[in-house]
Design a protein around this nucleic acid. Sequence first.
RNA 1: UGACCCAUGGUGUAACGGUAGCACUACAGAUUUUGAUUCUGUCUGUUAAGGUUCGAAUCCUUAUGGGUCAACCA
Length: 549
Amino acid sequence: MSEIKNRNFIEEIIEEDIRNNKHNGRIHTRFPPEPNGYLHLGHAKSICLNFGLAQQYNGKTNLRFDDTNPAAEDVEYVDAIKEDIHWLGFDWEDREYYASDYFQQLYEYAIQLIRAGLAYVDDSSAEEISKMRGIPTSPGSLSPFRNRSIEENLELFEGMKNGKDKEGERVLRAKLDMSSPNMHLRDPIMYRILFSSHHRTGTKWCIYPTYDFAHGQSDSIEGITHSICTLEFENHRPLYNWFIENLEIFPSRQIEFARLNLEYTLMSKRKLLQLVNEKMVDGWDDPRMPTISAIRRRGITPEALREFATAVGIARRENVIELSKFDNIVRANLNKIAIRTMAVLDPLRITINNYPHEIEWMEVENNPEDPETGKRNIPFSKEIFIEREDFMEEPVKDFFRLSPGNIVRLKAAYIIRCEQVIKHEDGSIHQLICSYITNSRSGSDTSGLKPKSVIHWVEANHCITATVRLYDKLFSVPDPANYENVHSILNKDSFQELTNAKLESKMKSADPGTRYQFMRKGYFYLDKNSTHENLIFNRTITLKDSFGK
RNA sequence: UGACCCAUGGUGUAACGGUAGCACUACAGAUUUUGAUUCUGUCUGUUAAGGUUCGAAUCCUUAUGGGUCAACCA
């Protein structure tokens, strides 16, 4: 069935397991976000991987919030995460779980390990524990509390649970190997005391399991067959397995893959939070952010994002994806579906002095890539706007657009020639006087003229004015993660707001769900704060532009 | 001076002991009433050295380079 298809290493593992009828051929994955921030591109890769694998192999995927640290977590994030996953196109059905659902079970597991002599309560301070752990290249030392009796451990652990101790006063540790070269095996901490209120369990618990003591068991409880995580958890795997083996519970298997890195993009939750908190961006969904909500607000489709998540591949080597890969996929997707319209972002008025008609209606396609979207008529008169940058008084080499004495084709209309430049007192250009070529009307052109360029325009008396927001890369360096100070690497030109853009009048009723292509300018999408009175469009991405290369 | 992991064009990813392929980028050309799209072509690669084998990107060894680990974060 899949002899020809190239599979990634995780698919190979799964197919091998299916062949061996492991877990009766059952495939069950999970996506385990911690609700302490918004989902970003890296998470999108993981979501597509986990849900995609389940779809591919007839399995299931659970959503599980990894909420074992009440100090950092919040319901605000829970809701946003759910919305993002659904928007991306995936559904966990009724399997919405929380690690905190298992707090009681986890507590019992801990007692089981204490009874087996495999866990102990340590009264050492955090600093002492850290010191006794040693360094990777030399063994740690044993805690003086390591050999407490089972009874004493049981009693002390119950005391911890009942709030007898202060935060940081005691922890429960697994008894493994203080001389292991793997630091995670040097008596890792299983439980710590935290008197913060949990977003789900409130103040019921004052001891909370650590990631290592919660994650594998949560997988196991849910019958997860393939627990997929990123490479930095690789050194945790022996511990993951140790807990499962010693607890004698369902053996989920942890598999690690390389996380996504993208040029010019920060993927660290901590730093993204900093950008938001210090108002370097307009919230988590600022279109320059790499979060899923920002990508949505930018106007990128879930299809494009899914395609990107697949295209980057799954492997175990560190990687940095080029931004052009992302851009390419976004453009290819939008090119197929975007409704074309003409919009002049930075208007320059033109009067066509020899144009005799009051008005004419010109027919133009809504999307040449999709004839089913039909055509529309747009008005044309002697007063129009063109893009200021489509005129150059002293054209540089290879500038094909309008300049004094030269001709250009107005898309779907006539060829015009620039006759005169009218300036303000300060020398800046006020407007242009042009003539039009009478027999050059689009579709019935008999002029024989071949202008080197076609430009967009809008009729001056029918158009509407709107706000257009142009976004660019947030950072000026391709590897922002390598800089501690994000302020110093911000791209100063990452945001530009134009408030005098001229749009075709039909855009008055622009649809919030529709992706538009402003011809020759890029793809645009209505912002969430747009109103009928004040239309705001976000630029999703520019068109490819080979001018000047 | 430890353990674990990784190494294929500029980037990402295939090739499962038998012709190093695909995508993106770059460059060149064709088409085009969007300098877009589309189409065609070109450049560039198995980290190194040994070994096993009729045959190695693939298996083994060593070296080199890179990543992860010393939170009561996940």
